[in-house]
Design a protein around this nucleic acid. Structure first.
Lengths: 305, 305
DNA sequence: GTGAAAGCGCTAACAA
DNA sequence: TTGTTAGCGCTTTCAC
């Protein structure tokens, strides 16, 4: 009988079953910064993982094209009756939506550097990660006889309540150094590349550069190479996120590894648990990132070259 | 009234409406090679574009984890009653499924280097693209006084009925050169990196390297740099796909640009048309890729360095 | 055990 | 125009 059904091209209609059971087996993935490899890697991890449990991940970017090319934050569509929502670095102004969805009994788990403290979340303690990175940069600068000038490369609007930012400020004042900001208008690699070049031509090159994320670090890396600057001999570079690409640039880029695999795994465990047991008490985990030292900042490598 | 509905947290249930109208506004995206930036870029293009027309893209990878880490090709789930399917470089053994879905009246459009000739498709003529690339490599080799040894870096299983492969064979015999294959077990960047190093240590370095795709080109690029080889002075490198990352490596990697944006736009136009008018006659387009010459193969740059 | 019937939340067709 | 109703394809329940 089943074989005959197969032959006739029968496929069960998931829609109908979802309608009656109230379980769509669809999970929404909310992202605001879609077009960076960091979010892509997270998406892959999640997708792969959810599939093992028979769930689909529907990407629901919080940005979209208006008119022709502009990108604006939109309200999440939430059209499907999702069984759950995974919110990746949700913007703070979205908390309302998050409340709404828990009100509608759609479980939410947020993950990343930003997270929603009042619900299940998997966070990353970038305060510590950043401190380690800056300490490492300072040592490298000393060994390589570079000037103790460490600049922070970031998009100014995204710096409020930011652990990277506050750790940077704190560390600079602790060490008696002047904070130096290289402001980039957006997260584009191309913009980072041109911005760093303009900045250095105008202000000279800081000894160390700490970038908000790896995407910008890649752009900055390229800009430095355009100027013929060598890492770590002339300047020490460290990014943040831990995307795989950082390995393949030359020199390989040091970064703060957020441990995406663990982060995703834990977030999904939390969400699945809450789907199955809505009343379970709040689930929380804060992860410790790891500093990965590569050629772009490693003074040992610097001496050889 | 509508305001009141909003207040009470009413959201229409897309499932129910889809069930009755027979329109889910969900499009399946079939990919076999998910974890490369090429497919990611395509996914972004499509997602962004579909959203303008109110459609969701559900990623339906044709590979998934078996047991713990193995990846195997699975039958596409096709659980949702998709309004259409976008099949990106579908493997030939999947044609049966594609027939099935058209039989079930789900429109399919395939796009990429591989495509399904019997239905709507947007193809890319890589035969021509590869020829241009190889001609360019030959010129660079001559100008840079490198030996006329051009190797093709690819995964052997994926080379059957392949325009890159056949164009390479053809061009080599035309020029009286011996084809040289660097076989890489899979599409991983890490594998490409180690493989190229082993190969060169054993066989010496070819003057030119043509890589099956940009992902492998990035791995190869890194391997060459590990060996201290300089591009294009010591070896000339060209990839294929046109992913943005190729710009950011140093030296920037030459590539064959498939014109993803145009490809995606056209594919979606075709699919939407067929959804609205199922009887429309077969829609077909073959695009011409562009060779983008960058530092990794540009003899002009080569002389400066 | 096997079979009929109710109903999930909508839309579309029809009646008033 | 407005209100009522049938039914999309399943699952679940309840009767047999």
């Amino acid at each position: 009988v089943l074989a005959a059904a197969q032959e006739m091209g029968y496929h069960p209609n998931k829609l109908a079953s979802a309608l009656v059971t109230g379980r769509s087996h669809a999970i929404a993935f909310w992202v605001s910064q879609v077009r960076t490899h960091y979010y892509t890697e997270i998406q892959y991890w999640l997708q792969d993982r959810l599939r093992l449990d028979g769930y689909d991940l529907v990407i629901d970017p919080l940005k979209s094209r208006k008119n022709d090319q502009m990108e604006v934050i939109t309200e999440p569509a939430l059209q499907w009756p999702y069984d759950g929502i995974i919110a990746c670095d949700p913007p703070f102004d979205l908390e309302k939506e998050l409340v709404d969805s828990t009100y509608r009994n759609i479980p939410v788990v947020s993950l990343g550097v930003f997270y929603w403290k009042e619900a299940d979340h998997v966070g990353v303690d970038l305060q510590q990660g950043t401190e380690k990175a800056l300490q490492h940069i300072l040592i490298s600068l000393k060994v390589l006889h570079l000037k103790p000038r460490i600049a922070f490369v970031a998009v100014p609007d995204h710096v409020a309540e930011e652990p990277r930012y506050s750790a940077y400020i704190k560390m600079m004042s602790q060490k008696g150094l002047t904070p130096e900001f290289i402001d980039v208008p957006n997260f584009d690699r191309a913009i980072a590349r041109t911005t760093i070049k303009k900045y250095i031509n105008k202000n000279g090159c800081p000894g160390g550069l700490f970038c908000f994320n790896d995407n910008m670090a890649v752009g900055v890396h390229r800009g430095l190479r355009d100027l013929g600057l060598q890492m770590p001999k002339d300047v020490v570079l460290v990014g943040c996120d831990g995307i795989e690409d950082t390995i393949y640039h030359d020199p390989a880029i040091s970064t703060i590894d957020m441990g995406m695999d663990q982060m995703c795994e834990t977030a999904w465990t939390f969400l699945l648990r809450r789907i199955q047991e809505p009343a379970v008490s709040k689930q929380t985990k804060i992860m410790m990132p790891k500093l990965i030292i590569r050629e772009s900042s490693d003074f040992k490598k610097g001496k050889q070259r």
